[in-house]
């Protein structure tokens, strides 16, 4: 029987993968993907807990997150394209222009 904890474990593993991606990756596009992974890990957790408590609020929240993620990607990808056109690279090590 697959229970709540299994879902939460999957969610946690996915979140960690996403977090590692955010921390380790140098390419901005890959960072985006990693962020998406983290968001979806949270979505899984929301849906699972919502089911567990028989409360639809969590699932509604997951939908909101999906919608907002979609718009964020749309805006973010636009910025990425502009950045790429300007610098010819999406590598964060090359984009460090605000060194203190």
């Amino acid at each position: 029987m697959i229970g709540l904890s299994h879902y939460l474990i999957v969610s946690a593993i996915l979140f960690s993968i996403g977090l590692m991606g955010v921390l380790r990756r140098r390419n901005l596009l890959m960072l985006f993907f990693a962020t998406e992974v983290m968001l979806n890990a949270v979505n899984i957790a929301f849906a699972a807990i919502s089911h567990f408590y028989h409360d639809l609020t969590g699932q509604m929240f997951a939908f909101f997150i999906i919608a907002i993620a979609a718009s964020e990607v749309a805006v973010g990808l636009g910025i990425l394209i502009v950045l790429f056109k300007k610098h010819g690279s999406l590598d964060l090590d090359d984009l460090a222009s605000m060194r203190g």
Binding site: R25, A96, G100
Partner: peptide
């Protein structure tokens, strides 16, 4: 810490 590198900030 203020390297200007987004990855470090993250």
């Amino acid at each position: 810490m203020q390297t200007g590198n987004l990855s470090n900030y993250l």
